[in-house]
């Protein structure tokens, strides 16, 4: 591609794209090594070419580009061999064809980020069906693949205004299926990272659709067993919402209290962390609405026999801003916690 005269460049580019539609079996790592190397080199050239040349992306190339990408990335993901796969403990199954797949993703990203990229042309090919297939790939066990998918979907969401509502709706469906049906989806954290940037960019006043997403999806997400894998991203989304619209605070706090873990202390520590993040941004006028039910729960945590839970709850008093809120409202807060504090100071084993 580098040496080709400009007149022949587009034809050559087209041929290389078609060449890269050939798929190889990486499970048999000795099979067809020569062919694999030819494709790897061709993909490298394509990445280089789109990344460095201007005026390359002419309209007729768009369908060829999308076809090559689709043929390579859209596939049925292998079933997780270990049904008891614990994302926190076990090593994920990495994608065997990664040597090629990575370059296809890299090429796709360069294509989307090229100054010559035209969404008006690309939207014929990057449509709702394409996006649905892309979202399915977020269930891949390979974190490297999910990282690329996250960046790609973030760019697609940004550049294709007509797809935004559809993407939000499909993410909704993935989360709801995850919460209420399968409790198994590998890309929840990545999707929440994208949603964090979307929430951050919401216009005010918030649309009802967005508030419903908080109430119907983000809060119930706290009830899932594998919360620890995506809690940081989930808490970030919740806090983004409250910074956008503080009137949602009461609903969020009551939702967390409703889903408060009863038997998983690790989750309880996460919930306390999230509560502190919320209190860090809370308006005093909102604090007074939830102080009593909230500090009744904090008091229960202080009395927890699990010392990490008790410690994390007591740690609220190390936060200057929370301290000032409690001081301003000690007539309401003190009665809910003092009895427990006194009892714990005498009886707690640790």
């Amino acid at each position: 591609l580098k040496e080709a005269p400009v007149s022949e460049l587009h034809d050559l580019l087209c041929k290389k794209l078609q060449q890269c539609c050939i798929l190889f079996d990486f499970l048999d790592c000795v099979a067809d090594l020569k062919g694999k190397e030819i494709k790897r080199a061709a993909l490298n050239e394509l990445v280089e070419c789109v990344a460095t040349n201007r005026g390359i992306l002419i309209e007729p190339l768009y369908p060829e580009i999308i076809k090559m990408i689709s043929v390579n990335i859209f596939r049925t993901l292998p079933p997780s061999e270990n049904p008891e796969f614990d994302p926190e403990e076990d090593e994920p199954n990495l994608e065997p064809s990664w040597p090629h797949l990575q370059l296809v993703y890299e090429f796709f990203l360069r294509f989307l980020e090229s100054p010559d990229f035209q969404p008006t042309v690309a939207k014929r090919y990057i449509d709702q069906k394409f996006v649905l297939l892309l979202l399915d790939l977020f269930d891949s066990e390979d974190p490297r693949e999910r990282e690329y998918l996250k960046t790609i979907l973030h760019r697609v969401y940004g550049k294709f205004l007509g797809l935004r509502a559809y993407i939000r709706k499909q993410c909704n469906n993935i989360f709801l299926r995850f919460i209420y049906e399968t409790e198994h989806f590998n890309g929840v954290a990545e999707l929440l990272e994208i949603l964090g940037s979307i929430i951050n960019g919401f216009a005010l006043p918030l649309k009802t659709e967005h508030k419903q997403f908080l109430v119907r999806v983000l809060i119930p997400l706290h009830s899932v067993k594998s919360l620890s894998i995506f809690h940081a991203q989930l808490a970030y989304c919740v806090v983004q919402f409250l910074e956008k619209d503080a009137t949602l605070t009461e609903h969020v706090i009551r939702g967390l209290l409703k889903y408060w873990p009863k038997t998983c202390t690790q989750k309880e520590v996460m919930f306390l962390g999230e509560i502190e993040e919320i209190l860090d941004v809370i308006e005093p006028s909102q604090f007074v609405k939830i102080q009593e039910p909230l500090f009744r729960q904090v008091a229960r945590c202080i009395a927890s026999p699990h010392f990490q839970v008790a410690e994390r709850a007591l740690y609220f008093w190390n936060n200057e801003y929370i301290l000032s809120l409690v001081e301003d409202n000690c007539h309401a807060v003190l009665p809910t916690v003092f009895g427990t504090l006194y009892h714990v100071s005498k009886e707690h084993w640790n």
């Binding site: 996250k150 973030h154 969401y157 940004g158 205004l161 007509g162 935004r164 509502a165 990272e193 994208i194 964090g196 940037s197 979307i198 951050n200 960019g201 919401f202 216009a203 940081a232 991203q233 970030y236 910074e243 993040e277 860090d280 941004v281 200057e320 801003y321 301290l323 000032s324 301003d328």
Partner: peptide, 30 residues
């Protein structure tokens, strides 16, 4: 004397995974 209220903490820095915000656009299809 009126106790000076402690100011709210400055906005905590975005976590490492935060991605650039995408601003909602009124042209988006509902």
């Amino acid at each position: 004397p009126q106790k000076k209220k402690k100011p709210k903490l400055p906005k905590s820095p975005a976590p490492h995974f935060a991605m650039p915000p995408i601003h909602e656009d009124h042209l988006e299809k509902i």
